[in-house]
Design a protein around this nucleic acid. Structure first.
Length: 714
DNA sequence: CATACATGAATTTTT
DNA sequence: TTCATGTATG
């Protein structure tokens, strides 16, 4: 995937790579080889004399960062790639705060709360409010922070009572975070920015550190991230932006901006030429991914949006096949037809007849719940698949609980783990106690766990609370000791089950869950997890670790726990071979497949329309970009399906094809098709079909199945 | 206070 | 359909 078709860079790419002296904006259309540009530019920068550590490439996801490092390694070798600063905005923020956070009142080993933790804190702040309200607050507060507002600014700008309440909760929340010596994800951007703005010494240090900053997916930046970028590249009268800044490269595509709802703003693209008058804007318009029909459909759809910059994709890959529209009776029918198409593609009975793997095929849709029917039908047809973008096994609360304990056992100073473990299950240690402990620890610049055994703690806390904390601490120490001396799957299982019994975890699940069924489902997950860890402690017959079936080495629980985050990330990456991908459109961004089906392309679903809000022009434009992103994921064939009847709530309502299907102007495309092209295509299809029927007759597979598949593909 | 039933609402996601 | 929250009843 993502393999460049061209052996060398095209003129626009070259220009982008060679522009080292000033600010540069690369408008990288879908499939135009932007990662190539970034990696080649990194190589060029190294060649021009910058040290690896002076080059910062910033991405949005860890996955993107890992991929970029991999690609860079391929180009400049392992030695050069190792010291490149390739990281996400957030991990760069962590780095800055770990190094200089003390200047904004943060001890060096502050904790980072995940969104579950945040929800808990917010519920506390609001006096044990219900989940839904707390979630709304979380949402609102996060958006505010993304716009660079603090509690005061938010309260001043609050539009109604709800927002005023949220702003007051935000103030409490910030106080609580400070007391816990914790930050949330948004703070990982906001606090470094505050740091750079406030402290000239620190600002100079970081500005001097990076000779060139590259930002990937620039259209996804929010206001605060843009400010942080400006602060990093410096220049200008106030040290931000303007003339005299360090050179940087922003790579993005306004047509692929699909994260406005979480604070990203295309404004950042609009402002870039204004804030940096010497900005060099370079559009990359040659697409190396998709065939003509697909690209034309994409261009036609996106033409419905006002454009910021002039840019139109073209391709040398030939016309390919026309985009197919599949009209379905309902969701079930849609899933059946999609499955049939998968089978037809796989049997090579469509397109140019090249061998098609399951992994070459993706089904993309607007909302997660749409995956369900496809899963059912794919399972029924025995087609392997993976769902990307859904909640992962490792995101489940119970698994995170246990991981927190293991993290704490391995690293006593992991404060987020401490906070989670010490309160799950509840053991009479509340936020009063924890706030006091946090404050105490912060003063001493110690982790919570260290602070817990300090003799002077008794000055800050009452005896009862201290007793509870000490008991917890002793228990964790005991667990740690035994974890080091327990190895082999069987003993590990005993150890882990004993631990769960000690902390009363099963009971905890039943207490927290009012449905018995759900509680036992969670407990089953826990048992799976225990088994999963135990197996990794080895010593058993034929333990299947990383696919090998050899007698494995015995490893201690401690060792296994130590590598748990790595194991999880590998398990999550799922190098799971030849499977069909089911994914939301959002999660599909940046990926590509030879064959793509866009499912449920209905008015109301894509463009999505909630129950009672009317759609603003901006919302519609973002939906259109989403459609554009979907179309441009396809390399060789694209099918778009929609539902004549759609379920909404309990009732079934008439479904309408999305306006985006009309906007693709498919009829026009076929009509304008070169007659020779068309003849060639039809003949190829015919040949493929004849071959297919021969193949079907020869194979033992039921003829009915083959007929069905052919039907659906034609 | 806990359980049972009714009613209403349903995006997108990374760190 | 499913999930979560609210209300009524024991």
């Amino acid at each position: 995937m993502n393999a460049p078709a061209a052996p060398s860079l095209n003129p626009a790419q070259l220009e982008a790579v060679h522009h080292l002296s000033g600010p540069c904006l690369v408008l990288a259309g879908a499939g135009s080889g932007k990662t190539r540009v970034i990696t080649h530019k990194i190589a060029r920068l190294l060649h021009s004399g910058l040290a690896p550590r002076q080059i910062a490439a910033i991405t949005f996801t860890n996955k993107a960062a890992a991929e970029m490092r991999e690609r860079a390694r391929g180009l400049v070798g392992a030695r050069g790639a190792k010291d490149l600063v390739i990281s996400t905005f957030h991990s760069l923020g962590v780095r800055m705060l770990r190094s200089d956070g003390e200047r904004v009142g943060l001890k060096t080993n502050f904790s980072i709360l995940d969104s579950d933790d945040v929800l808990g804190v917010l519920r506390d702040c609001g006096g044990n409010t219900d989940n839904a309200l707390a979630r709304r607050w979380q949402w609102t507060i996060s958006l505010w922070k993304n716009q660079g507002l603090d509690a005061d600014a938010a309260e001043a700008a609050a539009a109604d009572d709800d927002q005023r309440v949220a702003a007051r909760v935000m103030r409490l929340y910030q106080e609580r975070l400070a007391a816990y010596q914790s930050v949330d994800f948004d703070d990982l951007i906001g606090l470094p920015l505050a740091l750079l703005k406030r402290d000239e010494e620190v600002r100079c240090k970081w500005q001097a550190m990076f000779g060139h900053v590259l930002v990937d997916e620039y259209q996804d930046t929010n206001a605060v991230q843009y400010e942080l970028l400006k602060a990093l590249v410096g220049g200008g009268p106030h040290g931000f932006g303007g003339a005299g800044s360090r050179p940087f490269t922003a790579v993005g595509d306004d047509d692929q901006s699909i994260y406005g709802w979480r604070g990203a703003t295309v404004e950042n693209l609009r402002r870039l030429p204004q804030d940096f008058p010497s900005l060099k804007v370079i559009p990359l318009e040659q697409n190396y991914r998709s065939t003509g029909h697909i690209l034309r459909a994409a261009n036609a759809v996106i033409a419905g949006n006002p454009k910021l910059f002039d840019k139109k994709l073209w391709s040398e890959l030939g016309e390919g096949e026309p985009v197919k529209v599949i009209e379905c009776d309902g969701e079930e029918h849609e899933a059946e037809r999609v499955v049939a198409r998968v089978q037809a593609l796989r049997a090579g009975r469509t397109g140019d007849g090249a061998a098609v793997k399951f992994a070459d095929i993706a089904v993309l849709y607007r909302a997660n719940h749409q995956a369900k029917v496809f899963e059912q039908k794919l399972r029924a047809a025995q087609i392997p698949y993976k769902v990307s973008g859904g909640t992962s096994y490792f995101d489940r609360a119970e698994i995170k609980d246990l991981c927190a304990w293991l993290r704490l056992i391995v690293n006593n100073d992991d404060d987020p783990a401490f906070l989670r473990a010490v309160t799950t299950p509840k053991r009479g240690i509340g936020h009063q106690t924890l706030a006091a402990l946090g404050e105490f620890a912060a003063k001493r610049k110690e982790s919570l766990f260290e602070a817990l055994f300090a003799p002077t703690l008794s000055a800050a806390l009452k005896g009862k609370a201290i007793d509870a904390l000490h008991e917890f601490g002793r228990y964790v120490n005991d667990l740690e000791y035994r974890a080091r001396h327990t190895s082999g799957a069987e003993d590990a299982r005993v150890y882990l089950m004993g631990w769960l019994k000690d902390i009363g975890y099963e009971q905890h699940l039943h207490d927290g869950e009012d449905s018995e069924k759900l509680a036992s489902a969670r407990w089953t997950n826990v048992l799976d997890f225990v088994d999963w860890i135990a197996r990794r402690c080895g010593g058993e017959t034929a333990a299947e670790v990383a696919g090998t079936v050899e007698e494995s080495e015995r490893r201690s629980v401690f060792d296994v726990a130590q590598t748990i985050s790595i194991i999880i990330s590998i398990a999550e990456r799922g190098e799971d071979g030849d499977v069909v991908t089911l994914s939301t459109l959002h999660a599909a961004k940046g990926l590509e497949w030879p064959h793509v089906v866009l499912a449920g392309v209905n008015e109301g679903l894509l463009p999505f329309k909630g129950s009672d809000e009317e759609m603003s022009a901006e919302r519609l434009q973002e939906e259109r970009r989403l459609m554009y992103v979907g179309i441009t994921r396809a390399q060789r064939t694209l099918a778009v399906s929609w539902l004549r009847r759609r379920k909404r709530g309990r009732e079934t309502v008439a479904g309408m094809a999305s306006r985006f299907i009309t906007e693709m102007k498919l009829d026009e495309a076929v009509a304008k098709e070169d007659p020779r092209e068309r003849l060639k295509r039809l003949r190829a299809e015919l040949v493929a079909r004849v071959q297919a029927s021969e193949h079907a007759a020869a194979a033992s597979s039921p003829a009915a199945l083959a007929r069905k598949a052919t039907e659906a593909s034609g």
